[in-house]
Nucleic acid binder design. Structure first.
Lengths: 196, 196
DNA sequence: GTCTATAGCTGGATAGAC
DNA sequence: GTCTATCCAGCTATAGAC
């Protein structure tokens, strides 16, 4: 279950190259295109996937963990900035983060081991978001009355995800209007966005 | 491209059984589990998928169309009811509709033919929603100032989809709060929900 | 007209080569 | 310790049986 490393040498160049290639493939063609043969071929290394990872699920889980670790660090930085809410919104809308995560969500629908790993990871992200943003949201003198930080953090996530999904197949009805509404709301809470 | 019927007899019991089985499999195990062999086996009919459908993509497209036709009729009914906004929200949150659609979204990420079919279908749904709800939303005396129907329709879709997605892997942080916020907003526009 | 057998490929995993 | 050859299962699509 726990993506235990087959080989102790985590820094093996081959292993890293395999993970990199898997990530590229997943982004470019979706998780269904990620097979052991294609990974090795793309990485230009011998097909020894099952030497470095017990199963394909273990590889995916390792990839998820690696990505989460990086993203979490990035999120922490953004949430500690001068305008954490604006930063959070920009981070959510950044395609490069969202696309890989969307693939993992799709994959998790069909693979139990991935599902629990992703759920745990998502919980960590959400908790960090709430810890950083609750004060900002509650402390604001927003006109529209009391707001729930939990609701706002969730809704921002939902909207950004849906925007990315629909963008991916050329749908844009209501996008501009939704973005405008969200940003008006953020402005009420955190003030005008300061360009960096 | 256009899921042209291989056989003129659309009402063939076998053909319908194949589509039904495909839909069941897709819901239960995800689109990746839907293979011609498994469909036929599940339906209890001979494996003559390629007699009834040119390719697997054609089968998926036919399934998408069939589902869209049913859902569209359902949506039309709901949007013509006494409380179209409440009805719309309930419809969105209904798992039975959302789950299949989510599978098609995932499938569309990797299959071009499905993608354009789904985009077209989604546009039709969204347009109908806007046509029915724009008046309701604009005509309301909501306290929070002018609202964009496009934004609201989009955001309701985003929130309901994200709720379903996260439910699927046991995440619920912020769900109750988000639902409460949405329903408060609907109440402002359309008044208290009337039980049916 | 309806269905079956099979070709041809690609996948994950493993036994064992070096 | 690292990699390769291979097994076997599953897939779509097609040729052709009945």
């Amino acid at each position: 279950m726990a993506a235990r490393r087959r080989r102790p040498d985590d820094e093996s160049a081959t292993r890293t190259a395999l993970l990199d290639a898997a990530e590229e493939l997943m982004l470019e063609e979706g998780y269904a295109a990620v097979s052991s043969r294609r990974i090795a071929s793309r990485a230009g290394v011998p097909n020894a996937i099952h030497y470095y990872f017990e199963t394909m699920d273990d590889l995916f889980i390792e990839l998820l963990r690696r990505g989460a670790q990086r993203s979490l660090a990035h999120q922490e930085e953004v949430l500690a900035s001068a305008q954490p809410l604006w930063g959070f919104w920009d981070l959510l809308r950044d395609r490069s983060n969202g696309a890989l995560n969307a693939e993992f969500v799709a994959l998790a629908n069909h693979r139990k081991a991935i599902r629990s790993e992703l759920a745990e990871s998502s919980r960590t992200f959400r908790r960090m978001q709430l810890a950083a943003l609750a004060g900002v949201i509650e402390g604001s003198d927003a006109a529209a009355g009391p707001r729930s930080p939990e609701a706002i953090v969730f809704i921002l996530g939902a909207i950004s995800r849906f925007l990315l999904t629909e963008d991916a197949f050329g749908l844009d009805i209501g996008h501009a209007e939704a973005i405008e509404l969200v940003e008006r709301c953020i402005r009420e809470i955190e003030g005008e966005r300061i360009k960096t």
